[in-house]
Amino acid sequence: MIRRRLADTVAILVAVVTVFPIYWMVLSALKPTGEIQSADPRPWTLNPTLDHFRSALGVSGFGRYFLNSLTVALAVVVLSALLSFLAAVALTRFRFRSRTTILVMFLVAQMVPVEALSIPLFFQIRDLGRAVPGVGLNTLGSLVLVQLAFSLPFAIWMLRGFVAAIPAELEEAATVDGASRFTILWRILFPLVAPGLAATSVFSFIIAWNDFLFAKTFIISATERQTLPAALLVFFKPDENDWGGIMAASTLMTLPVLIFFIFVRRRLVSGLGGAVKD
């Protein structure tokens, strides 16, 4: 009992330390400027103000940018879940010649520095846009496409473990019962890997939501298609140190991810465990 209590205390202490920077971020966003710049910082404030949030939300077109970001992130989450599920099934339930090669390629894909790829990708997107409308430069489609490409390798790699954890007997039994391949995939396998999908979708969501490299590279002249992080960069001015504004902008950027996390948390914890029984 004492050991349990000690463990509890340690866990809570670690939690406090871990969450403290987040608390400090929100707190500083709520502090009036005078208190932020005081040389005597205090871990509370008696005069909370929404001024910093007001100026961050006052970035003209905030709502629009927020929607753009959300659209891109959700589209990437959904598409990446579907595509990585199919690919993961192919890579776990089948043995074929280039299987290992493909797996290693997925790893390699994650090793390339993103900045290095942004140049060739720019031309790819530009040329693609000339052939297929809707995915060229200055479109949200281009962001979805690129973010999808960047989240897929990791999603497939993770999801493989989840698919492998599902006993093959289930599918065999279904086949005996005369179920079609389609049914097996969508009615049997898909629901079973749902927790795993929750886990991988967290990653896809983060990749898509936090991106500003591609947003600022691809969205050139169409300001109305800007995404939120790229718009909030205004506040991260190295030379002005407007800490209140930076903290408010940071809070606004972090919140949606946090909400998405809480949304999938249960599935996340049970889901990640599925990757065990490879």
Partner: peptide, 19 residues
């Protein structure tokens, strides 16, 4: 503890570094 960890995980690299 798991909520605290999720919060740290959720913070974008940029905002985490600045904070």
């Amino acid at each position: 503890l798991s909520f605290a960890a999720l919060a740290a995980w959720a913070a974008p690299a940029m905002t985490g570094s600045v904070v």
